[in-house]
Design a protein around this nucleic acid. Structure first.
Length: 672
RNA sequence: UGGCCUAUGGUGUAAUUGGUAACACGUUUGUUUUUGGUGCAAAAGAGUCUAGGUUCGAGACCUAGUGGGCCAACCA
């Protein structure tokens, strides 16, 4: 129900319109066409979500078609990885297809185009052709081979196919218009000679079709109704349609290309080429390094298909460039894991805590809830003893009142255990705290502000924990024409630490996700073993204390923080306040208008003519703003400002307006 | 000296031309809590880039301007 009432994006609108214009629902068919030259990343997930999502919505088939027309860059490894990623996301494709399946048909059509005089073999260097092509602002010129005879074209194309030509010696081009305003229409290449082994067709072919020639015809062969791609293909649409015009029969479904804005994520890069560089330069451990924005990286990091799908659904689909805040991705994974991840205790930065009044050698196994968000999650036992590890951050010798973790003389709760009171600290020669001594009470009913997590030293298991930070320190490392994205690499994107975890984690399986209480979500890395547990930090918990202590650290006072929060208004200029009051002026009932007018007049006393002057140009339809300006102007005039031409013009325009209030205010001034 | 696309709170998306421009994230506040998490409640923040036009009525349509993006690979 709620699904149906959800608003449609522009692609869904197009489909709905096609449906009401007579297209049958049964003719709906989509495709996802990755090139197998790299791993899928979070940006692809958007394209996947759109096409497969449409398939689910309309119960229509979605083909997985590998766009494998360039044997130089494409590999089986990538095909396998792409299939795994799509499946993992939970999508099912209708048919697994390859553009290379259509090489023969494409070839036959190309011959047909030559015979129709719509394609020709060009035998120039790529440089010569580029020169003839012109620029976006200058038309191209015809090349010397453009009017080759059909017979000669046929013969040469045959030779190209038979492997009798060297790479680079000839190409087949569509014969369209070298002066076209769209560069792509200036006799685009259809085929090039490439004597390379292809991952599927082996050495069958010496010529390979180009993207534009291949894509639309492949869509047509598969009877794709809506061919959805990202915005940079918009100029290709004209060519896509031209190629279709040559072959489409009037009684068949003609695919429609439509374009949406690709996904950009702050602090990350999406270019496959650049991601490949990170892999090749060993900046990361591989395509599935948990810092990578690849699907395999996110999977290894601990993200769930659910979270990623929710994310893609939330960012929406439109045509303007966008940068999505990583905070939204993090929100999605937290939201999912909060409901599903079992809670455990782990200490990442340990300091020893000794409970002096707890008997030496005693141990207890206390009951702990696995997940309070999930009633079916049950309970487990955690061992307690005299000597524990707690987080170094959870103790301060001297602390302000808003610190409600452990200090000397104060009580805090140990999660799932007792209440303790800090008594004294033991330090080494350098002054570092080596032990904290405390006493405990078994009365757990007391109200205390803070609760700490802990592990019993005797029972704790050592584990390697990998904490990740963003790979880049710039919000859009990609977007600086003057700077290479590698300059923004974060040298501290990976921190490997030794942590102590509760013994229940001994048999944790690869891939399992946990919440380390009060810290964040972690999953068991694929390199983990019974001898050496390894965890990846997926994402931290929200931490309002970190935020607050940071703002205190930066010298921001509590009062400053509050005043900043309060409407952001205290420091605003009088003229700005007046404009805001003006905006709402015409919507107010008369009584309130009077009140607002008085307010404006009050603020007007602090306005200079220079501040006010620009507002004389306010658009005619913004009546409220003009009224406010008029009221303010009157105050200034009454304070002794002389009238000038600009003022007279402004007042005259007010007198001519249809709004009564504005006319009244204008009259008030013209009488002065 | 071009063509095409685009412009709505900080971010991302909505809004059969008609009620006070909605939702999510983020921010702030209060509250609950054996996680400074979660939940719950609330607040702040936009007259929709600018100027004209069409219309009884424009965020939406038209024109111009401005800003941003894309287009000159034998890549996809």
């Amino acid at each position: 129900m709620s699904e149906e009432s959800k608003s449609l994006n522009f692609i869904e609108h197009i489909i709905e319109e096609d449906l009401t214009n007579g297209m049958s629902k049964d003719d709906l068919r989509f495709r996802f066409p990755p090139e197998p030259n790299g791993y899928l990343h979070i940006g692809h997930t958007k394209a996947i979500g759109i096409s497969f999502g449409l398939g689910e919505r309309y119960n229509a088939p979605v083909n997985l078609r590998f766009d494998d027309t360039n044997p130089a860059k494409e590999e089986q490894e990538y095909v396998d990885a792409i299939k795994e990623d799509i499946s993992w996301l939970g999508y099912t494709w209708s048919k697994e297809l390859y553009s290379s399946d259509y090489f023969q048909q494409l070839y036959d059509w190309a011959v047909y185009l030559i015979k129709e005089g719509k394609a020709y073999v060009d035998s120039q260097s790529s440089q010569a052709m580029a020169e003839q092509k012109g620029t976006p602002t200058q038309p191209g010129v015809d090349g010397p081979y453009r009017n080759r005879s059909i017979a000669e074209n046929l013969e040469l194309f045959q030779k190209m196919k038979n492997g009798e030509c060297e790479e680079g010696s000839h190409v087949l081009r569509a014969r369209i218009d070298m002066k076209h305003t769209n560069m792509l229409m200036r006799d685009p290449l259809m085929y090039r000679v490439l004597k390379k082994h292809h991952h599927r067709t082996g050495n069958d072919w010496c010529i390979y079709p180009m993207y534009d020639w291949t894509h639309g015809e492949s869509d047509y062969l598969e009877r794709i109704s809506h061919s959805l791609c990202s915005l940079e293909f918009k100029p290709h649409r004209e060519l896509y349609d031209w190629f279709l015009d040559q072959v489409v029969a009037s009684d068949t479904i003609r695919p429609k290309q439509r374009e949406f804005a690709r996904l950009n994520l702050s602090y990350t890069i999406m270019s496959k080429r650049k991601l490949l560089k990170l892999v090749e330069d060993n900046i990361v451990s591989g395509w599935d390094d948990p810092r990578m924005p690849t699907i395999s990286g996110l999977r290894r990091r601990g993200y769930t298909p659910n979270a990623i799908r929710k994310f893609v659904e939330t960012v929406g689909v439109a045509k303007r460039d966008n940068v999505i805040d990583v905070a939204l991705l993090e929100f999605c994974i937290r939201e999912d894991l909060n409901k599903t991840a079992p809670r455990v205790m782990a200490v990442l930065d340990p300091v020893k805590l000794v409970i002096t009044n707890y008997p030496e050698g005693k141990e207890e196994w206390l009951e702990a809830e696995n997940n309070q968000e999930d009633d079916s999650a049950g309970f487990r036992k955690v061992p307690f003893s005299r000597e524990l590890y707690i987080e170094r951050d959870d103790f301060k010798e001297q602390a302000s009142s808003n610190y409600f973790r452990l200090t000397l003389g104060k009580e805090v709760r140990l999660k799932n255990a007792y209440i303790i009171k800090g008594e004294r600290v033991v330090k080494d020669a350098a002054g570092n705290i080596t032990e904290i001594h405390c006493t405990y009470t078994e009365d757990t009913s007391k109200k205390v502000k803070g609760t700490l997590h802990w592990v019993s030293i005797k029972h704790a298991i050592k584990a390697e924990v990998r904490e990740y930070d963003r790979l880049f320190m710039d919000e859009s490392p990609d977007a600086h024409p003057e700077k290479d994205f590698m300059e923004f690499l974060n040298p501290e994107s990976l921190k490997i630490i030794t942590a102590y975890v509760e013994p229940s984690l001994k048999d944790a399986k690869i891939g399992e996700r946990y919440q380390f209480q009060r810290l964040g979500y972690f999953n068991v890395d694929k390199d983990s073993s019974a001898e050496k547990l390894m965890f990846n930090k997926t994402v931290g918990l929200r931490d309002s204390w970190a935020k607050e202590s940071q703002s205190v650290g930066s010298g921001e006072k509590q009062s400053e923080k509050q005043s900043k929060a309060q409407n952001n208004q205290p420091q605003r200029k009088a003229i700005d306040i007046i404009q805001q009051l003006g905006k709402k002026y015409t919507n107010l009932p008369e009584e309130k208008q009077l009140k607002t007018k008085a307010e404006i007049q009050e603020h007007a006393k602090n306005v200079s003519y220079d501040d006010l002057h620009p507002w004389f140009n306010t658009a005619a339809k913004k009546v409220g703003t003009r009224i406010a300006t008029m009221i303010t102007l009157r105050v200034l005039l009454e304070q002794g400002l002389d009238k000038n031409e600009d003022i007279n013009t402004f007042v005259a325009s007010g007198l001519e307006d249809t709004n009564e209030a504005l006319v009244t205010e204008s009259k008030n001034i013209s009488r002065l």
